[in-house]
Design a protein around this nucleic acid. Structure first.
Lengths: 235, 235
DNA sequence: GTCTATATTATGATAGAC
DNA sequence: GTCTATCATAATATAGAC
């Protein structure tokens, strides 16, 4: 119960990170940054949906209700504008793993809480994963500048929990790969999935709502020490 | 045993599809299409790694050891060149589900076989998933022209197997989502994963080798009717 | 079929008035 | 700070000689 509270507050913090940051920035500098914010918002939409190469400064200007010259006044170049947005977004998708990972008393509970919160985050920012992947693929140098400490710390906590007998022994990296894949894939592959299964937006939304339960079922099933019945290999 | 043979031949066919097709084409038209093949090969590399917007006709020409004019001679425009390659590649990632899905006698065995073969396919064409996702995102019209009958047929076979009591009852779409996500994510997220976990190419390759066993473990664990112990929901 | 040279347009970026 | 007008260049595409 106590760990649950700590966990929830940490994970919620992670979800609300950007919203808070934006509000602070706007409030602090009054209306002078209004235009800058408009540009950032427009650029965000453009870059997130079309990627760097597919985005046009003209399109960003149109979307912001301004002209191209204003973009270059507030941000020297397309690159600079892109990088500023990238750093904001990276800190969203790659939250810092502070106390959360150490505060848990039950690793399975912690992981289930993480799934809930991370899927909530992705629902708020559905384009984020694919956008980050595009950067990771197209601009390795830029991408390497953002650090995510969560994965490494998660693997360590997993290993510790396994040693303590709290969870079934397993390859932590493979587990993390499965976990992240299960969470991110519906957002990354939305268009492909909808087309291949012939799903309307409404049906797909329902699928997303039920996603957390599905992933958590996998977590419990795989990690619970007792549930070891049918796990012998096939080939 | 018999079903295993049918299964394997069908799945192997799917993996070898493009290799066969290419050989046939080259052999059929002798050396006249040599240049065209060079262009296609160069364009494939370029488009697959940089996407449509990031690719340059000049870069393709350089890679093929030709000049830009030749690209426009053999293919009217960048769009046409791109679309030709896209259709080839789509048929690779979206194999036709012929007899395979009906020939199985055990759905879990079939699914495990599918995982093996599909991961082998992805290992041969690691850029394929991300490339297809880029098209699905950037050019919905083009993407909608390729059809994948596998997902729908898989869902039907799943439902039938569940009704027959061969597998545990479960949402087939959620299962497919998890299955595909677990298979594709390491290829889609390679750069991000390696960076976030600090993995060398060699270590990551090892991770990929062990991937099939991990995914199959999940399949068996989730679908085996008896293994129903710890599946109650959490929240 | 293949090349060089060139046309045409799109796009990022800047100059300068207000 | 914001705008209009313009520059400079990069990229797709074509013309025409060989």
């Amino acid at each position: 119960m106590a760990s649950r509270l700590v966990l929830t507050s940490w994970l919620n913090q992670m979800v609300n990170l950007s919203k808070k940051a934006k509000t602070q920035r706007v409030a602090a500098t009054a209306d002078k940054l209004d235009t800058k914010q408009k540009i950032l918002a427009a650029a965000e939409t453009e870059f997130m949906t079309r990627g760097y190469d597919g985005s046009r400064m003209q399109a960003i200007a149109d979307r912001a209700g301004l002209n191209k010259a204003m973009l270059h006044y507030h941000f020297r170049s397309k690159d600079e504008l892109f990088e500023q947005i990238f750093r904001d977004k990276a800190s969203l998708l790659f939250p810092k793993a502070h106390e959360g990972l150490r505060a848990h008393t039950n690793f399975i509970e912690f992981t289930c809480g993480f799934v809930d919160m991370y899927l909530a985050l992705l629902n708020q920012h559905p384009y984020l994963p694919f956008y980050m992947l595009q950067v990771a693929t197209a601009n390795a140098v830029l991408f390497s500048q953002v650090a995510a400490d969560f994965p490494v710390k998660f693997v360590r906590a997993f290993t510790a929990a396994a040693k303590a007998g709290q969870i079934r022994d397993h390859d932590p990296q493979q587990f993390l790969l499965s976990l992240v894949g299960m969470c991110m894939w519906p957002f990354i592959g939305k268009n492909m999935i909808q087309h291949n299964l012939g799903l309307s937006d409404a049906v797909f939304a329902t699928l997303l709502e039920q996603r957390a339960a599905e992933v958590k079922r996998y977590v419990v099933l795989l990690l619970t020490p007792e549930a070891r019945a049918a796990t012998r290999k096939k080939s």
